[in-house]
Write a protein that binds this DNA or RNA. Structure first.
Lengths: 374, 374
DNA sequence: TTCGAAAATGTGCTCGAACACACAAAAAAA
DNA sequence: TTTTTTTGTGTGTTCGAGCACATTTTCGAA
């Protein structure tokens, strides 16, 4: 049975099994500070001082210890490191209320899941919610939050200017702050966890291109106030860039801004608009309000391909019924969870927080939405 | 600034900020076994016996302690728990060699990433590779691996019967074993980390349906040996089930088995076949060999929509060029990483291993593949 | 009542890193 | 030379859970 020869790649060394004999060079030692102290012929206190650059070590000892540390690539046990530190960390998470926009509901699951994993490690979360249509509400809630002096903050900022001020304030007060879902500014004080919104627009464009081949596409922004515009503008720019790169004249692209009743600023109805533009065969809805356009399509039996955003209930229903062709999943749950975890691991284990964490942009149809709901 | 009223939902209690006064009911205590012992008026030893059901505790004490544990929802600090256990765990990962099929390359990244996260916690991995076209190689490598008596095994088994035997052997030897990428059997000894292959076929069907509207679709299995068939059969069944559910006569569906030179068993060429079936307008390729069909399409300038599997280099190139319409990402990296993590967390923290972990099935087009490559 | 065994409970050490503190040796000041 | 300061080094305790072992209590049998 074992008479042939196998190779087993193992820790960059090759062990060879030959006629029942397994030549196995195995380093199972788990080095500790004490081990290193013994190897260097000093006490663990001295090793510790070298590790933390606390000084008060002779050059000869320092050199000897450093050499050993490098040789075995020593990394202190993060578990023991953390044990001594019995502080409770507070992470505050600031995001819009859900009753206006169910998009935010999955964040609650993320928080629950996070708490289950991290509460026994001494990390707590606190939720602060603000009114998604009031910059004032965002600002005030943020300030009240900051006044409690948490260890870290994770926020979904809809309002650019206010968010930037909050971010700056936290920076000055030495409170760690991360942003999710909406990016503030690349060179700002806060890092970003979420998706590449520009690319997200390009994906929508590719999908509609695949679906249509040619025609007239309407980019529709539904019921969004001016302050939230950056978000949608990035998607729109991405969308258009796809067709610019394609350099073809097969498509006409129009941009439409609608209020929550699907009316234009000048009170013109969407119905009237579509009657005047019968050539429109595709729609890109830039927010989770995609279902509003899909309901319109259903009611008036329009021949439209629709690509929009997010796995909110109404969208899923219409996706299953075939009134929405594709959804792009912004995955607020994953964003919140990754955001919280990144902060927690930084607080607990000193892991560094990357300038930005870009999560995958999921394409959803009626057959694969289930997996993303968990 | 703070004159208005805010609400802060906090640990299911509502704190109210009113005129600069923040009423804050905050539980910052991190309970330890010692705390619980004090509360119950016993020693920590007794609490420990209750926690681990080690017996030798009076009913009265047990009741009192249990009540407190439930009240504060006590969870022992996993960090301290692990500290005492200074064992080094060995997880062996068994999967095919990459030189025949680059599909497996991302698994190496998963292993690297895993090692970075878990080596300081005392978990090591060892790689064992087998020849993807030799059941004998799989069996022998598995046996040699088992003879080293690792703490856990993660394997990607291409061969149903052999895998089942290996799984059984591990079960008898009390070695924890997990399966990824290919499911063995639902009621077997091993759990499964991967995708729902049946559903994956349905997604492909929906995509082709979206792309075509009607026509003749060929399901193509390329260069796969009989033993690996379950994998593809599940996809094929899912694919067909979509159209059965749709209950429409818009499509004709054929199944084709090809060798690695894209020839039929009877040596008929694919080119000849397509000439005899000019109505074929869509293709579903059930493996990562999708590029072979796409190259065929490119060479003979066929008017075909192609949906296939996996982000291997050749597929990505043809996806970008437009010769492949959609890819379904089986995400071997994520599968391997989740598999390793699940095993490690079980070994380290006693977390339980679910019977199956179904990962999302990603739809990929030319605009969103980048995010999934990381 | 006394002894002995069994049952119940308490004590104390361990893990690895961190850090305060004690102590030594060498250097500087008296 | 003696005293003080500086610099280097070692020791011992802490964190929380787990577990071996020590100690106490209980209760039945002699």
């Amino acid at each position: 049975m074992f008479s042939s020869t196998y190779n087993c790649v193992f820790e960059n060394k090759i062990s060879i099994l030959l006629n029942d004999l397994f030549i196995f060079v195995l380093m199972t030692k788990k080095y500790t500070i004490k081990d290193i102290a013994e190897m260097a012929g000093v006490s663990k206190g001295t090793v510790d001082r070298v590790l933390h650059n606390r000084g008060k070590v002779s050059d000869s000892a320092k050199e000897k210890i450093t050499k050993i540390l490098e040789e075995i690539n020593f990394k202190p046990n993060p578990i023991a490191k953390n044990l001594k530190n019995n502080k409770i960390y507070r992470i505050c998470i600031l995001f819009p209320e859900s009753h206006k926009d169910s998009y935010w509901v999955p964040c609650l699951d993320a928080i629950t899941e996070f708490e289950e994993n991290y509460q026994s490690l001494g990390v707590k979360t606190e939720q602060y919610r603000y009114n998604s249509s009031s910059p004032q509400s965002f600002k005030e809630t943020a300030l009240s939050l900051i006044s409690t002096e948490p260890d870290a903050i994770l926020m979904a900022p809809l309002f650019f200017n206010e968010a930037q001020a909050v971010s700056k304030l936290c920076h000055d007060k030495n409170i760690i702050i991360s942003t999710f879902n909406n990016i503030i500014r690349k060179e700002g004080f806060s890092n970003y966890i979420g998706q590449d919104l520009f690319q997200s627009g390009r994906i929508a464009a590719k999908l509609l291109d695949t679906l249509l081949g040619q025609g007239h596409i309407a980019i529709i922004h539904v019921d969004e106030i001016v302050q939230n515009a950056t978000h949608m503008q990035q998607k729109e720019r991405g969308f258009k860039s796809y067709f610019e790169d394609k350099n073809s004249s097969s498509y006409k692209i129009s941009t439409i801004n609608l209020d929550k009743n699907l009316n234009f600023e000048n009170e013109e109805s969407l119905e009237a608009y579509f009657n005047n533009h019968e050539d429109i065969n595709g729609v890109f809805v830039t927010t989770s309000k995609t279902y509003k356009i899909a309901e319109f399509k259903k009611t008036y039996q329009k021949n439209l391909k629709i690509v929009g955003y997010d796995l909110v209930d109404k969208n899923i229903t219409l996706l299953k019924e075939g009134y929405i062709d594709f959804l792009i999943n912004q995955n607020p749950k994953q964003q919140a969870f990754v955001g919280l975890s990144t902060l927690a691991e930084h607080l607990l284990f000193d892991k560094d927080i990357p300038k930005s964490i870009l999560l995958p942009i999921d394409i959803i149809n009626s057959e694969n939405f289930q997996q993303y709901l968990e």
